[in-house]
Amino acid sequence: MAAPTRDREPRQADAAPSRAPAWTARARRTVRDPAFWADWTVVVALIVLVVVFASLSDVFLTAGNVESILVASSILVVLAIGQTAVVATAGIDLSLGSILTVSSVVLGWAHAGGMGIAVACLLCVATGLLAGTINGLVVARGKITDFIVTLGMLSVAYGAALVISDGRPVRVQDQFLLTLTTGSLGPLRYNVALAALVAVLGHVVLFHTRFGTHLLATGGAPEAARAAGVDVARVKIAVYAISGLMGAIGGILLTARVGAAEPTTATTLLLNSVAAVVLGGVSLFGGRGSILGPVAGALLLTALINGLTLLAVSQFWQPIAVGLVVIVSALMMRFRR
């Protein structure tokens, strides 16, 4: 498109550049457009990070390390998808980490009590769904701010985990969980495959179902949604239930990986789930977002921590790095169209 301006003043010396395809001009314009960087922040940042770490460390891009990044990110990916569902309705789930903890502890308690692993996992999932549904009911029907409700649930769920476990970790030795964390489906470890499956399902639900459209409408224009007959309250209850379910799946994955159910605060996981969502370009005001973005955000945060560890940077620096990345990328989002 920009070619004609050049063609009007043909000079011999310019022959070579003027024959350059139009896409270079377009690419130059794109690169100078802040909105482009804003829309693709997380992908650009992920690529930059991979290039930087790959040049600083020989190990970073080896198959083994890439696999360990994927495995380490699988829990965060699942949590970020749950958080995305809530944030896309202009809410936030601060209890996600605690729901993971209490679900995991319920799994351990059921397993230690001699129930089969299937029953234990079902109870774990039921716990997450119950906590999430309570969040949703209080937010939607009780009309209390999401921030306060889920902050309360954060404390309740963590406390419940302490009560059930009596404050002690429970060892969970089980073949199914061991396979989940060490076995492979083709090139993908089972836990990575599970996270990928959740991501694909999340994408389909958000962009290709009625529920997904209603979710985005609830977040972006609640009044218009209500006037169009969308049951806004039910959508809200559903997203908190989904978030709780994702917390429970995260709980199963964590229990499998650690080989124990621990009643510890999963504050880092909670903060990182919000960070992944923000990095992924999901608007905190609701109505705008994707699944791919937060998944890339979760990968980015995990790769960042992995890379810093490989470079022998003290782990005390890691939270600082994570926080800075989140703040800088949030600043870049401001340039979004």
């Binding site: 459209t213 985005l216 409408a217 977040g219 972006g220 224009a221 009044e223 218009a224 949604a225 006037a227 169009a228 109505g287 705008r288």
Partner: peptide, 8 residues
């Protein structure tokens, strides 16, 4: 004013 959802 509330006829349409801007984000859709």
């Amino acid at each position: 004013d509330l006829a349409l959802a801007d984000n859709l």
